[in-house]
Amino acid sequence: MNAQNLISITDFSKEEYMRIMELAADFEANPDQRLLDGKVVATLFFEPSTRTRLSFETAINRLGGEIIGFTDSSSSSVTKGESLHDTIKMVSNYADLIVMRHPLEGSARYASEVSDVPVINAGDGANQHPTQTLLDMYSIVKTQETLDNINLFMVGDLKYGRTVHSLLMAMSHFDNPIFNFIAPPELTMPNEYKMYLQSKGLRYFEHTEFTDIISEADIIYMTRVQKERFPDPVDYEKVKNVYILRNKMLKHTKDNLRILHPLPRVNEIHTDVDSNPKAYYFEQARNGVYTRMAIIAHLLNLK
């Protein structure tokens, strides 16, 4: 049997995105649905990611499932030199579903080929983190009531930030998105994504200044400039404080504007934004639980 997996955001069609949005809304309205009763879910975190793991484990618990797994590879047989192949083969004997985080890119796709049960990619290095994208989309649809005609501003590290790349790919399936990219020259959106938008006839604009151009935004998607992405720490120091969102910058923005961030934030959103009703990043994290419940229910055909 070909198990259905979620490895890359491009694995899902527009219809499946919409199905996940509907299911997430249903779980938000009725969170106590014990659809995983009697089922075991393995959460295999080969590198620590507390936020993602807690979100998945909350989703599994709310669905009534049991959890096995490990929180980083030092507490697993990987330290004894076991291959990923063997770990996945073994765990797929025990569990009904595998949720996996791994530092190597492509590891989740490989695991899905080895596993007898569905695999959800909870992040494979800098490659994909599709459940983050789906929760971002759910946050957009919840706050904007649509995924069409969204003016989306992406700010910060657009070069290495996998969340912005996946969100761009996903939003390109909907009607008339406008993309605005704000990044320092060192961290601009890679050409392959701009060419992808061009090939679909979609509009995008690039900016280096983070100013009142945001007055047209429906969504501002902030990202963290990660120190570990820079081979030379001097380059990081040059850009780390360049794109900071402050409350006063939101004065002339649209009422429906919401600010998203995949979290954790460092300093790119000033804490004075937190009390502004347009700040949405903590609600966004809560949406992650409902979205992950929806993804699990969809992949296991529970609803």
Binding site: S83, P103, L104, E105, G106, S107, R109, Y110, A126
Partner: peptide, 8 residues
């Protein structure tokens, strides 16, 4: 960092 360069 690709899995193919790290696993057989």
């Amino acid at each position: 960092k690709c899995i193919t360069n790290n696993e057989n």
